[in-house]
Design a protein around this nucleic acid. Structure first.
Length: 731
DNA sequence: GAGCACTGC
């Protein structure tokens, strides 16, 4: 193997690390930073005083990089070199180089905040700015003050972000390590196309007709566009394929393709020689096998060009060999959270410069390539952000804030926690409100005993709270199942594109329906069915459930059950097979526990129709998602109150995964909302208060569904209750 | 009566 570029910098790296507590390393693709930095420092004695730990944002990366390093050092994986990911810890007492996902490192620092066992912490791929990496950056910044004498931090980032990270760490030095990419010629379009798909199609055909062999990778935003372009390409290429040019294979690539893809991905990344066995074991459908084994991950037949039409999954998560041409439409689909409404939306946004460069780089892995950008270079220069908006500014922060509170960093004010890019004050306030409503913090913002326990569970706080309440009501086993199912929800149903939809003969007729109580109950019933069928894999297939998703649920459930056992310090009945007695008919206790956990995700039905308005947020009209199994009564009326798992704005604002609850359980929440004082919650943090005041006024200005609402919070809540009671009297 | 990019504990 050719010598990796990074090795020429070995002395420089060691010298810089020797003299500085923090070093930023800019390493382009192919520089070997992920595998070599740890080994370089190991060679220079940094494993004598502790372990060198390297974080990765993805599990496959942690595993495959660890495997590679073990190979290079000629040791057995899990001994001197190991890795730790969720459900799998392959390290031993002899481990001195350890790869892990950033989430695992956060969990570790929960029980050992100073991370004393580590002599070096390397935060790899920090430019991806995952929520966990951002929290870690804040934590290590604090750590180097405490452990100045015996801790070294390395942060790897992208060219455009290095200065900023360096500044964050008191202007620490930046080392540049070149990559091993071939040159990629960048071609910008003159104008922005009126139709991206047409423009993609034209560019792709031009390449196919004019350019020498080499695969084409096309970046689009989602499944819909991908399917459209695939069929457009098929049509067009068929019409010109009269021996005038080489053959073509057109392949879609996105996350909702069958689960076998994921497994294949892992196999490929690990370059597993047992590929064939693994492949048989995965029991692939003929189509999938064609797509992912024969086609995307192995070279095309001679005189044949592949067109891979992909989401940004091909940007970082997965590498397709043989790509020489990239077509970049310049957009990506991003999930964002709005803290004032509690609503998520999935928006198409422009990519950042870092993303654009990453995409272009995909053309230069095997030989010089070309990247066709369907936007002018002026747009790239003037409009694109340097780096994508970090996840921490696009997510609900309840989990992260609870985590930080539970660390008890007495020397740090959580609300002024030193983030590379701080989240908005509004977002922090929203997190505090959520935590207060589920008893994780008290009215002055201090973490409660409840909150500490909740922080130990690898779940969203609302679900942790549900488990704890369920434990009180004797329905822990059911609640464990529900929250585990929710953690895997997107992996459960088979990917259903419009074309596969038609092919399906019987759309899951045999699955339980939640007995009218809603989607959580249905999820519970589905798992119970599987349990009754002894976790039979064929049962999943018969019911159009992804096997991998269901297996994941089983793992999550087991992990959560273990943690709950530990917390309760006694033996709990967490068996899925537990005899379900009186609770089975109306799932009353379970629904009650969900209501307590989802105190911040409550909605009240409107008087005259089946629309709902959210309670506790700036009031909005929302609807039950059409995919829900929640049932109306004989008169066609939905339940007066529901809790929901998430609000998502697509064509309209929808509540996804709803559960019917009762008025009596809602009252305590309304009372708590009445007492809510965000100023007090944020512990008098000045900058928070300012913004809070402004927003408060905004919230109270809003009206609800045409009904004039008194202009203050207290009477608004009272009015809501009165309206409800009036309605109740009618029935 | 609708549809969803990608990760992770």
């Amino acid at each position: 193997m050719a010598r990796l570029p990074i090795l020429q910098f070995e002395e420089k790296i060691v010298e810089t690390v020797e003299q500085n507590p923090v070093v930023v390393v800019i390493g382009e693709t192919g520089s070997g930073k992920s595998t070599q930095l740890s080994q370089i420092l190991h060679r220079h004695g940094y494993t004598k005083s502790g372990i060198i730990v390297v974080t990765q944002p993805r599990r496959v990366a942690a595993v495959s990089v660890a495997r590679r390093v073990a190979q290079e050092l000629d040791v057995r994986l899990g001994e001197e070199v190991g890795y730790a990911i969720r459900f799998e810890d392959r390290t031993s007492e002899r481990t001195h180089i350890k790869y892990l996902t950033d989430g695992v490192l956060l969990r570790e620092s929960l029980s050992n905040p100073d991370l004393n066992q580590y002599s070096v912490i390397i935060l790899d791929e920090a430019h991806e700015r995952s929520l966990n990496t951002d929290v870690l950056m804040g934590l290590v910044k604090r750590l180097i003050k405490i452990r100045a004498s015996n801790l070294k931090i390395l942060i790897t980032s992208a060219t455009l972000d290095g200065e900023k990270v360096s500044k964050f760490f008191s202007n620490c030095p930046i080392l540049n390590v070149p990559g091993k990419l071939f040159p990629v010629e960048i071609l910008h379009s003159k104008d922005r196309p009126t139709s991206y798909l047409d423009s993609c199609l034209k560019t792709a055909i031009d390449i196919h007709v004019r350019e020498p062999e080499g695969d084409v990778l096309i970046f689009l935003t989602g499944q819909d566009d991908i399917e459209k372009l695939v069929s457009m390409l098929e049509d067009r290429i068929q019409s010109l394929q009269e021996g005038s040019c080489m053959d073509a294979i057109i392949l879609p690539l996105h996350g909702s393709l069958p689960p076998e893809m994921q497994a294949t991905k892992a196999v490929m990344l690990h370059a597993n020689p047992k590929f064939d066995t693994a492949y048989e074991h995965m029991n692939m459908s003929a189509k999938c096998c064609q797509l992912f084994n024969v086609r995307v991950f192995s070279p095309p037949p001679p005189n044949c060009r592949r067109f891979i039409v992909s989401t940004n999954i091909a940007e970082t998560s997965l590498t397709v060999d043989g790509v020489v041409y990239v077509i970049d439409a310049g957009y990506v689909k991003q999930r964002q959270y709005n803290p004032s409404t509690g609503m998520y939306s999935l928006d198409v946004v422009q990519i950042s410069k870092v993303q654009a460069n990453q995409r272009a780089g995909r053309a230069g892995r095997t030989r010089p390539g070309k990247c066709y950008r369907l936007y002018p270079s002026k747009v790239y220069q003037d409009e694109f952000l340097d780096v994508s908006v970090p996840e921490i500014q696009r997510s609900s922060l309840a989990g992260s804030v609870l985590y930080l509170k539970s660390l008890d960093l007495t020397d740090i004010d959580i609300l002024k926690f030193d983030f590379l890019d701080p989240p908005s004050a509004e977002s922090l306030r929203d997190a505090l409100k959520q935590l207060y409503l589920i008893d994780a913090i008290d009215e002055s913002g201090s973490i409660t005993t409840f909150g500490r326990t909740m922080a130990e569970l690898p779940l969203e706080p609302s679900l942790s709270r549900t488990l704890m309440e369920a434990n009180e009501y004797g329905c822990l086993s059911q609640a464990l199942t529900v929250v585990a199912m929710l953690s895997a929800e997107t992996m459960l149903l088979q990917g259903r594109s419009k074309s596969t939809e038609k092919k399906r003969k019987h759309p899951s007729v045999d699955l339980p329906d939640g007995s009218g109580w809603g989607d959580h109950i249905q999820l519970l019933q589905i798992f119970e069915c599987w349990d009754e069928n002894n976790y039979n894999i064929n049962w999943c297939k018969d019911n159009d459930l992804q096997v991998r998703g269901m297996m994941f649920v089983k793992d999550v459930r087991k992990q959560l059950a273990q943690i709950m056992q530990k917390i309760a310090k006694g033996s709990l009945d967490v068996r899925a097979k537990q005899r379900r007695k009186e609770n089975r008919r109306d799932y009353r206790n379970l629904r009650k526990a969900l209501c307590v956990g989802y105190a911040n995700q409550l909605a009240e039905r409107m008087l005259r129709h089946n629309g709902y308005r959210t309670v506790g947020f700036k009031s909005q009209l929302v609807q039950v998602h059409p995919s829900s199994v929640l049932k109306a009564d004989e008169e066609g009326t939905l339940p007066d109150y529901v809790v929901y798992h998430e609000l998502i704005a697509t064509s309209r604002p929808y509540m996804r995964n709803v559960c019917a609850v009762e008025m009596a359980w809602v009252t305590p929440i309304l009372e708590k909302l009445e007492k809510l004082d965000t100023d007090k919650l944020s512990g008098g943090s000045a900058h928070i208060d300012e913004v809070a005041e402004i927003k408060q006024t905004e919230i109270l200005d809003k009206k609800v569904d045409g009904d004039a609402v008194p202009d203050d919070r207290e009477s608004k809540i009272k009015a809501a209750r009165e309206r409800f009671l009036a309605r109740k009297g009618k029935n």
